[in-house]
Design a protein around this nucleic acid. Structure first.
Lengths: 266, 266
DNA sequence: TGCAAATCGG
DNA sequence: CCGATTTGCA
């Protein structure tokens, strides 16, 4: 028996908006710890990891660990039927091949329940090692989204370069080149507008903008985003979910070509 | 060496939105006087003239007159990457075949630079004589845009007729006819809502609405538009750019056919 | 039906 | 000034 009651149902709606374009089908893993998901995107290039800790739910009952395969498109369709301030409860009976989403309007005047068939999905659950990163950039998520969108109108890939002074996003395309530099700025009153750079050593990595722009679908989940970079390691783009956990996206850097002209230089 | 710093960068963004649909490629001419452009539209029917006077720039350095051929679509793409209250600087080195657009966010925390290849464009720079017009109508630009859009849903051409009493916009199409009359009104408190008619002699001219509706893309540049009419002269549709200059569109009238039914009468 | 532009509200 | 919503267009 599984029963997870989430008062801020809009969180779950946003989570699905954030990942459903990247991943079609995935197993949600439910244990005493929390509600989580780990899946490769459909082209097996990027990886999504979601965690919603049990403490973030108003009520969390999970008698035994269970893995539930869902079609995220269909799940998203159902969650769209929930109001933004509905309370959402996820329910599943032991051995059942369905999951039920229950939506309660704030006034309790409207109670909906949507039942969805589960799927069998084989998933290789990857252990993702905690790694040391050469540089970690924390910045406003809206700004990151804007930069990825702007650069995608010029080129296909972005070079992210971090130095102590700031972070530079560069691209190059048929019509020209673009460089966007953000200075470190911690002095603002509002911490969510700060750009903070923790750097152990300078790093410069190239990524496909197409994936970055998928990741930024998670922008509504958090005012800030954290980008963790190391040479030869996948970048981690993390959106924290207040009080509950995170959505993290992993993407391997493109191997740099030897011709200097193919990419902008630091 | 060229370096033009425009504090109100949104002006340049709006200028490109206003003209990029009409003109694909054009030479921007930069001299001590200012930054200007003159180009025929791609079907060689209408003419666009832009002037941004040097006094309107915060910093204006243009060592020697230079003509820079740009693809306006690509230039517009790059300017879309500037924030609406960014400061925009246009830079070009002598003899370089590229131009650089630099965008500074108001807080100076984000500095972007976009480099674009220049093109070789042959352009016949027409001297446009100052002419005496039979009638000059000044009216709210939004109202003019609305009229052109409305009339285009009925017919293909507009007859603009000016008398002392007012200005009439007429069209005729398969489904019927339309006449919109604006009375002269100078009495309003707000001068940008006035409709002012200076008339030396009555005039009635026919124009293709397709072009008029392209011209109205410049509406965001100014609250008012000035329409200058003379028989046998191209109409001038002018949007003033505060403190800096103008965008002017020129369009030859259609030669009137002899059948009375082909056009509405005054 | 889905996307983009315009408008309104925060 | 930006974001969200609504509306019109393809």
């Amino acid at each position: 028996m599984l029963e997870l009651r989430l008062v801020q149902g809009s969180l779950l709606k946003k989570v699905l908006e954030a990942i459903k374009d990247l991943v079609n089908d995935a197993n949600f893993d439910c244990s005493a710890t929390g509600f989580s998901l780990q899946a490769m995107d459909s082209s097996h290039v990027a990886l999504v990891a979601l965690l919603l800790r049990s403490e973030g739910f108003e009520h969390y009952r999970c008698d035994r660990s269970i893995s539930m395969g869902m079609n995220l498109g269909n799940m998203s369709k159902m969650l769209k039927c929930a109001g933004n301030d509905d309370i959402i409860t996820i329910k599943a009976d032991d051995g059942s091949d369905t999951v039920t989403f229950m939506f309660e309007s704030p006034t309790q005047d409207k109670i909906s329940d949507f039942e969805m068939k589960l799927m069998d999905i084989d998933s290789e659950h990857l252990g993702i090692p905690e790694a040391e990163y050469h540089a970690i950039v924390r910045m406003p998520s809206a700004e990151f989204a804007r930069i990825c969108k702007d650069l995608a109108s010029i080129g296909d890939t972005v070079v992210i370069s971090v130095t102590k002074e700031g972070v530079k996003f560069s691209t190059r395309g048929d019509i020209g080149t673009a460089n966007i530099v953000l200075r470190q700025n911690t002095t603002v009153d509002k911490p969510e507008e700060a750009t903070i750079i923790e750097m152990n050593e300078p790093v410069s990595l190239t990524f496909a903008l197409r994936y970055m722009n998928s990741f930024t679908k998670a922008t509504p989940l958090s005012n800030t985003v954290t980008i963790s970079l190391s040479s030869e390691l996948p970048v981690v783009v993390e959106y924290k979910i207040a009080e509950m956990g995170y959505v993290r996206f992993y993407l391997a850097p493109k191997i740099e070509e030897d011709e200097d002209e193919t990419k902008p230089q630091v």
